[in-house]
Design a protein around this nucleic acid. Sequence first.
DNA 1: GTGAAAGCGCTAACAC
DNA 2: GTGTTAGCGCTTTCAC
Lengths: 344, 344
Amino acid sequence: MQVARATIFDVAQRANVSIKTVSRVVNREPNVRDSTRQRVESAISELRYRPDQSARNLASHRSHLIGLVYDDPAAYELPSSGYIIKMQEGALRACRAGMNELLIHPCDFRKKTVGAELKALIRDARLSGIVLAAPLSNMPRIVRAIESTNTPLVRLSPGSVITDLPTVVTNDREVSAEMVRYLAQLGHTDIAFITGDPLHEAVADRFLGFQDGLAQSGLKMIKRFVIAGDNSFRSGEACARKLLQRKHRPTAIFAANDDMAAGVIRVAGRMRISIREQLAVAGFDDITLSRQLDPALTTVRQPLARMAEHAVAMLANHSEHSNYECVPATLQIRESTGPAPVKH
Amino acid sequence: MQVARATIFDVAQRANVSIKTVSRVVNREPNVRDSTRQRVESAISELRYRPDQSARNLASHRSHLIGLVYDDPAAYELPSSGYIIKMQEGALRACRAGMNELLIHPCDFRKKTVGAELKALIRDARLSGIVLAAPLSNMPRIVRAIESTNTPLVRLSPGSVITDLPTVVTNDREVSAEMVRYLAQLGHTDIAFITGDPLHEAVADRFLGFQDGLAQSGLKMIKRFVIAGDNSFRSGEACARKLLQRKHRPTAIFAANDDMAAGVIRVAGRMRISIREQLAVAGFDDITLSRQLDPALTTVRQPLARMAEHAVAMLANHSEHSNYECVPATLQIRESTGPAPVKH
DNA sequence: GTGAAAGCGCTAACAC
DNA sequence: GTGTTAGCGCTTTCAC
């Protein structure tokens, strides 16, 4: 079946040029006359020539392999792995566009050995670039390990940007403030916040945004309405219990991610507190679960696919892109938020 | 920074053998004296030698690249993408063990062009093997397209196995029967079933298992208690509404997947029907959501990671494995099922 | 602008 | 058991 593939020699022969010229055309190098280029190009398409990556890599000493490194959901039974699919989707799109391949590498960031593991990965797989997802991207130890190999690196959502490393973020802080202003406009004044995993800096920015939003709405933060969660569904439940058992309870709860917000909804349901009528709940991320909850969750849609796409593009084509890219997130208003209950 | 990598020549020199002998050791070929092998192996580890994949591939005309092809969740806002992460996890594990690399390829099975798309993928990426997930694995058109390229293929959960192609399955039918027997033992006699996506054959096997289970428990199937869903959360809700609005309603509902079971739980909640006390609900898959529901869902745990691992191992090492592997699923009894309500 | 020749690091085929 | 040699299909260097 399998017909022998055309090689660069076949193309050269057919176009009546040397293989070097074909190589120039394929690699978009200068110094080729237009008429020559066209001849070569038609030969390429007639023969359906595709350069052999292995030969290319071997001769050029570079791989066209980009590594996507993220926290391993299998290591902790992470609740919502949908964000990984989103990242992969975007990264894949950019890889195809840039003739690159994608190597996925989930890893357990709690292990002391991640740094060494990533160095070995870079070495063994000869990665030509790495996209590092949060929270790995905000861990200096890990970032430094990768930097020490001189492999091009783009960080995804590293939170407060300290270095001048190539970075793609979303506007966690601004959009969180926007959510708070939205709640305030609905008449809410007693707004609680459930903070997320302290190791995850981008999530910490959401808390800053919460404070901004309160200030912008002329509200002040009520200390006992700020409770520490850890991004998990369970922690959302625990925090909700603490908040809702009080005599004076908040009329709105903004959780730093959707999983925790889902926990809030579950607990409120059990306590027979009506979401939306008696309690507004908002989350962050827009995971699939948020549409399956009852009521559907008001949240922030994080453009993860486009962020990952940008990151790979920065790697593949560093000249045309800036060092820092912000892909804005947007409010997704659904059913879990409504006007504040009137006080009696 | 980057120290020059050791090549096969360096190793040969250090071990005082020819490069061919090093190659033999690396590739686990026979005909090497034990003492020689050991000398070579210590040279390899002293020099931290890792064979160059590109050179290897180029010389051997094989790529060591395995493609994992599955339905693209981005194409339909598929509810639970967790199963993909699980498959990737297992496939990745087997790839590392076998010195292979993994290329992930989500694709939209409803497009007429998938066959051509996969052929192009195989050609361009020079895949040395493909693992095809359900429901793509039960679509003759797609399977034939891949077969026509002579690329080794392993199918994951293709449902009723018609051909002798290498296949990895789980015991959908048997374990579904087991679930029904479990419900019957709890005293349930009016058990409803919500069928899944008709394009997905492995899911159809679950319905067969449902019938087996009834028969084994001396129960007969009640036609009006069998309702057609399509694997989606929404369809689970719709089916539940139909089932529960009747004057004579089932005391247990077994849905062909967890998403639909989640829909049942939501609807029952709205109708103030108490799950477990008044209605037992069971699902299939054990997606993350099933643990976050209230009450937590009784379901079937599908060993997707190990199935994918097996599939890749079959590809990498076809001699040592049989052509057909069944990794059994197991019941996960949680909170959503209990004794049948006593009749008044 | 274009081409010739020398590898890249490995495997395959065969010799010893 | 072990070694020799000739490529694999490309990029690189340098010559023209």
